[in-house]
Nucleic acid binder design. Structure first.
Lengths: 269, 269
DNA sequence: TAGTGGTCTAGACCACATT
DNA sequence: ATGTGGTCTAGACCACTAA
């Protein structure tokens, strides 16, 4: 909430534009501009916050990419939604997401094996042929309820660390972060798959039942792959949401080349 | 592909940074920097293209949001992927997407009714209570194969135009665009649903079979809702992909509040 | 220590929407 | 005609990475 002549951005955040963005986000959430209302002009905001127009534009770019406001030449920005909470870690980490929705996350390691990587895994994790990988199978729970099965393939550097974690560790992501493994980019593919025997046994569903699948390949800030994972959710426990605008989109449909059982199931580049 | 001292950006696109981005994208796709390789420094690129560093940074922001390159302080940018094609329209329009993957899109209008909007629809389309809406049910096909059922609710202004389209019109989005209806922002929710009798009849699947569902609310550049749609895909015909980075994300998980049959099925804000 | 990307400024001109 | 956001420039300083 900013003042009339406000210049106090007492907020915590690091850079100036982030603090401005956080302040504007709060004001929008508080309904200061109404849903469908208009934001002040960039110049006015610059004056109010005592920063340059460039910094204001940087802050507004954040809100735009979050789907909070529109932007087009000639008119003031329009407020699209009143709130929206989403962070990178919430999508990447089951634990982080569970906590953000007020549920108690759990994770039980069902198996962890070390074995040579197959061709697919070498390609995805950018490993030399013959390299070894660590493969985990975990049951994830929300407040004790089984919700998701997680199969993850780690490259050696990361897998060695994972192998040392306790079997009931809740958040691998957070523990790996403490060891200097940073997740910074990820590609996700969402589709539908049918439960196999492991799935049905652990999730308590019938074999062949449809599950929502999310596959993901994550890299560190240097672009080096750190995990390749396949998560299978019980129906009704989760939905994925995305916002895109004509200005900047991140999501796309991926085609499954129809009745052609020859090629392997490759929906990830 | 840029030259050693290149300054020729003969490309079509409008703004300078877009042409630079397109040029860099091509160079990356051509493998000029290798996968996992490093881009030249911003300053070097600025000199090469004869533009300011700010413009280069604008171009690189495009590539970063497409998941093509990383970026972190202290090091040159790293190439993440070699290619990635995705546009806003591909996600929004079944027709546009189908064409981009080389399939022949089709659409058959099964029904179109005009009726008063319910509370949910008024809220989603930001209409006054008692306003009327146009509701369509369409079967979408790829090269003749049934693939998806599309249920769309339009506000009056848009619905009146839709009602005048031929029943076998392939792309409503494109035809509406010719009438000045522009889709510029959309919120998507992806989850799993079971086929009802309409679904099974039109898609040729068994009732109760699991389908991949995408719900979407789209607005025009002024933030005014122009459609609220629910699409149901046959399993195996489509997968949704998304890229996100610690810098900017657009996707999130949405929680389904578990065994509580009281509250209506609201997974969209 | 040198090089890199991240942030911020101040100013300019243009394309577009609205009046 | 006015005001708005979009684009572009030139320069500055800082935080971080890597040698």
């Amino acid at each position: 909430m900013q003042d009339d002549d406000g210049a106090q951005l007492v907020r915590d955040g690091g850079s100036l534009y982030r603090r401005v963005a956080a302040d504007l986000r709060e004001a929008i959430a508080a309904g200061s501009y109404g849903s469908g209302g208009r934001l002040p002009a960039e110049g006015a905001l610059a004056q109010r916050y005592g920063v340059s127009r460039g910094t204001i534009r940087q802050a507004l770019a954040v809100l735009r990419s979050d789907g909070l406001v529109t932007s087009r030449r000639g008119t003031r920005r329009v407020v699209l939604g009143t709130a929206r909470v989403q962070s990178f870690s919430e999508l990447l980490s089951f634990t982080s997401w569970a906590r953000s929705v007020g549920e108690e996350p759990g994770g039980a390691m069902e198996s962890l094996v070390r074995r040579p990587a197959d061709d697919r895994e070498c390609e995805q994790l950018r490993l030399e042929p013959g390299a070894e990988v660590y493969v985990t199978l975990r049951l994830r729970t929300l407040s004790g309820r089984p919700v998701m099965i997680e199969r993850t393939v780690y490259p050696p550097r990361v897998g060695e660390l994972v192998a040392q974690l306790p079997a009931d560790a809740v958040s691998h992501t957070e523990l790996l972060l403490e060891h200097g493994i940073v997740f910074s980019d990820a590609d996700h593919t969402i589709d539908l798959v049918h439960a196999d025997t492991d799935d049905s046994r652990l999730l308590g569903c019938t074999a062949g039942e449809a599950l929502l699948r999310e596959r993901r390949r994550s890299t560190d800030p240097a672009g080096v792959p750190v995990e390749w994972s396949e998560d299978r959710y019980l129906p009704g426990t989760v939905a994925f949401t995305v916002h895109n605008s004509i200005a900047a989109s991140a999501l796309s449909r991926r085609h499954r080349p129809a009745p052609d059982p020859h090629s392997p199931d490759v929906t990830r580049g």
